[in-house]
Simulated scan of single mutants.
Amino acid sequence: MSDIIASGPVPTSVVQRMKEYHPPLGDRSGLRLDFNENTVSCSPRVLEVLGKISGAQLTVYPERGSAEAVVASHLGLAPEQVLLTNGVDEAIHVLCQTYLEQDTEMLLPVPTYSMYAVYASATPATLVEVLAEDGFEFPVEAILRRIRPATRVIAIANPNSPTGKAVKREDILRIIDAAPQAMVLVDEAYFHFHGETVLDLVGRVPNVIVARTFSKAYGLANMRLGMLAAGEEAMHWLRRVISPYSVNGLALACLPAAMDDKDYLNNYVNEVLASREQLAAALTDLGVPYWPSQANFLLTRIGPKHSAFAAAMRARGVLTRDRSSDPGCEGCVRITLGTQAQTASAIEAMKAVLNEIGWNGDQA
């Protein structure tokens, strides 16, 4: 070629305006209290399954069907009502691609999980954000006022991240009833630490869709496993959109073992719940404001020294998550809960760091 092309093809206008997400990964050595992961390990039964995977098994394309039947059985659903996904991120992406188009809207209470807005922005639809009330209370009345015929998706994280706040079942039901033209996603990623669900509505209410993850309590974040549960009509369209091989075979092979090990799951969840009380008591003693949580983390308000706090905690080998850029979260840092021993270590580091950065309660 005699001429050099200065620039390549231009992406679509939708991609150009799409929100970007840059997870603060990099070096994560130390006590990982930043991403709400399981802080210990997956079930040992999962490791046993991995050890038995043969080379021949790696040569075939993965099939979801048998694993979806196992999950459905555990949850009291029909296999046709369960769709396994490459993490809940893919579940959100598929939902947005299925229902959002030009001249439609997605309603999103904020602050909340970032990927709802990212994947909504990958469609031509309009994202309508509704700010939480004081104390991060769920803005049910404001959401009800914003529902229009154009509303096609409403995303509700229950419990919510980064706040840990739970949504009352009656508020979810009011929204479902007020928006029959919209799919109401109830994202129950932190279900195991909360214990309340609307999974019983699946198959009975056509505009309800529930998401779950196997990244948190089950400790399978690296395997990227999530799921959607919905009525068969909605599933028909969701399965049309999703890639047939997006969930890898190793994850599918390990999932039944993870779900069967109830003792492991219960023990880990109980540790986290005890840690939640432990950290809450310590924060109270230290005078650090925080919000009560129904998830495996607590959101604290450090104030103007939030960056210095997170950096000093990292220097002491404890990773936390600065959430100051989220709506209404100025000065906030989120701390994941692991075992009680891990939480004790984090508390000791926090005491030293607060003194080191010259923090006092008036600054929050």
Results as ranks from 00 to 15, higher is better:
residue 53 I to M: 03
residue 309 F to S: 07
residue 360 N to S: 15
residue 235 M to P: 12
residue 123 T to W: 02
residue 182 A to V: 04
residue 66 S to P: 00
residue 294 Q to K: 14
residue 249 G to A: 14
residue 164 G to Q: 01
residue 103 D to T: 09
residue 47 L to V: 13
residue 46 V to N: 06
residue 317 G to H: 06
residue 97 Q to S: 13
residue 201 L to I: 03
residue 136 F to K: 08
residue 168 K to Y: 13
residue 222 N to F: 07
residue 171 D to L: 05
residue 86 N to E: 11
residue 292 P to A: 09
residue 154 I to T: 12
residue 49 V to I: 12
residue 90 E to R: 01
residue 60 V to W: 04
residue 262 K to C: 07
residue 49 V to C: 07
residue 38 N to F: 06
residue 137 E to T: 04
residue 160 N to T: 02
residue 245 Y to W: 07
residue 140 V to D: 08
residue 317 G to I: 10
residue 100 L to Y: 02
residue 303 G to S: 06
residue 290 Y to D: 02
residue 82 V to T: 02
residue 237 W to T: 08
residue 179 A to T: 05
residue 57 Q to G: 14
residue 9 P to Q: 00
residue 48 E to V: 02
residue 218 Y to R: 03
residue 22 H to M: 13
residue 170 E to N: 15
residue 304 P to I: 02
residue 334 R to Q: 01
residue 310 A to Y: 07
residue 140 V to S: 12
residue 155 A to C: 13
residue 98 T to S: 15
residue 112 T to L: 04
residue 196 E to F: 04
residue 79 P to T: 01
residue 62 P to I: 07
residue 322 D to K: 02
residue 53 I to D: 03
residue 21 Y to L: 00
residue 96 C to G: 07
residue 230 A to G: 04
residue 18 M to A: 15
residue 82 V to F: 06
residue 206 P to G: 11
residue 214 F to N: 09
residue 2 S to W: 05
residue 97 Q to R: 15
residue 205 V to T: 15
residue 220 L to I: 06
residue 339 T to H: 00
residue 236 H to G: 03
residue 330 E to D: 15
residue 108 L to F: 12
residue 347 I to W: 05
residue 72 A to N: 12
residue 361 G to Y: 08
residue 50 L to V: 09
residue 277 E to W: 09
residue 77 L to Y: 10
residue 131 L to R: 14
residue 173 L to S: 05
residue 344 A to V: 04
residue 109 P to N: 09
residue 145 R to K: 15
residue 113 Y to Q: 13
residue 349 A to Q: 03
residue 109 P to L: 01
residue 214 F to W: 12
residue 314 R to Y: 05
residue 24 P to V: 10
residue 25 L to E: 05
residue 281 A to L: 08
residue 343 T to Q: 11
residue 90 E to V: 07
residue 321 R to F: 15
residue 92 I to E: 08
residue 338 G to M: 09
residue 241 V to A: 14
residue 209 I to H: 01
residue 72 A to K: 00
residue 302 I to Q: 11
residue 158 N to S: 01
residue 236 H to T: 11
residue 284 T to V: 13
residue 276 R to M: 06
residue 186 V to T: 14
residue 248 N to H: 07
residue 70 V to P: 12
residue 141 E to V: 05
residue 139 P to A: 08
residue 31 L to S: 01
residue 57 Q to A: 14
residue 93 H to V: 11
residue 294 Q to G: 06
residue 273 L to G: 00
residue 175 I to L: 07
residue 92 I to Q: 01
residue 70 V to F: 02
residue 33 L to R: 00
residue 111 P to E: 14
residue 237 W to F: 15
residue 173 L to M: 09
residue 182 A to I: 08
residue 351 K to S: 14
residue 346 A to S: 10
residue 95 L to F: 13
residue 154 I to F: 06
residue 254 C to G: 13
residue 129 E to H: 05
residue 343 T to Y: 04
residue 251 A to R: 05
residue 30 G to T: 06
residue 49 V to A: 00
residue 96 C to W: 05
residue 356 E to I: 12
residue 225 L to K: 10
residue 149 P to W: 08
residue 191 F to D: 05
residue 142 A to L: 11
residue 22 H to C: 08
residue 168 K to N: 12
residue 189 A to D: 13
residue 125 A to D: 01
residue 156 I to Q: 07
residue 118 V to A: 06
residue 142 A to D: 14
residue 108 L to A: 07
residue 101 E to M: 14
residue 328 G to D: 11
residue 182 A to D: 12
residue 135 G to V: 11
residue 105 E to D: 00
residue 134 D to N: 14
residue 60 V to Y: 12
residue 79 P to V: 04
residue 334 R to I: 06
residue 324 S to G: 14
residue 198 V to G: 11
residue 196 E to S: 11
